[in-house]
Design a protein around this nucleic acid. Sequence first.
DNA 1: TAAACATATTCAATTAATTGAATATTAGCT
DNA 2: AGCTAATATTCAATTAATTGAATATGTTTA
Lengths: 178, 178
Amino acid sequence: MALSHAILAALLGAPCSGYDLQKRFEGSVGFFWQASFQQIYRELNKLEELGWLTSSTVRQQNRPEKKIYQITEMGQESLKAWIAEPCDMAPIRDDLLVKVFAGSLVPTQAFLAELEHHQAQHRQRLAIYQQIEQQFFPTPESLSIADKFRYLALQNGIHYETAWLAWCEEAMGAIVSS
Amino acid sequence: MALSHAILAALLGAPCSGYDLQKRFEGSVGFFWQASFQQIYRELNKLEELGWLTSSTVRQQNRPEKKIYQITEMGQESLKAWIAEPCDMAPIRDDLLVKVFAGSLVPTQAFLAELEHHQAQHRQRLAIYQQIEQQFFPTPESLSIADKFRYLALQNGIHYETAWLAWCEEAMGAIVSS
DNA sequence: TAAACATATTCAATTAATTGAATATTAGCT
DNA sequence: AGCTAATATTCAATTAATTGAATATGTTTA
């Protein structure tokens, strides 16, 4: 199961609280494995029970106290083992594509609006990726090994969104001309 | 929830049994919303209770009897309503990408092997899509409206796999040169 | 001063998905 | 006669994910 390992991966950088993790998820690993905050908190408890994380409660002034989680040696080993074991390509589960499949049932205009909506979302996501690219990876030739991998993950996102946008254009063209 | 609607969409073409549906899923809607046969049977029962499907038991010679499911008027309406209501872009949940994210933890060779494995899988999937394209959509200009939408779904798959393969090349190049 | 926002976490209910097994019929192979 | 494979369906256990609510503290804003 990947959520636990996504959390471990996110904690590699620096120890943090569930709340921070949730925030960190948006804008990094969360692009590739999203999870709700309830899921994250539940998983953190489970991982601590397993001994893959340790926590320490920190009292703050002006704020509720928080629990800082840190990855353990065991956690790192488990993460490594999981990365090393082969996996299959992720199955697709995309509402829009099953809608497209039966799209002839609804009026063309309605469908076009939906495609525009998705186009906008994919454009926005691509813009986010490109902003991260410029901000964090201005010189991709000279990256640490860890950053090189993060850069590759980002590039995957960019390829993905670019392909979606190309398809949106194509699909909208095909639909209006019918 | 999309599984029910994916099943309805698959039944639009022709009524069939759970077993046939399962087979039909591989090679059409199933590319965009995969489901196990247990899921499909459970869902068929649920959809029949809702009145979106009707079934009739067919005794066959030389084979166990089967239940043929057919979409009802209500089922079609529900499918239309679902297609018409807007949805967000599908979240990504991809093991490999969270592995890439923390890929620096494992030896380069191991990671390269995993990438080759995925490259092979995506190549294979692309080949399947292209075979479907040649077999069922040789002249995309002259398609019925229903087929035009199915063709667009297929094109999405082709874009998706092509993007993955481009990324695989890039990633493998970046990893060997480090 | 009340409302809204940000921090920080937990609990419970439900739905969906995965995994493994069981059952029944017939065909074809060794 | 026994084995495998294909057809055809069901049940049960578990894990994962979604949804909605509740609680607590402090800051900013209207």
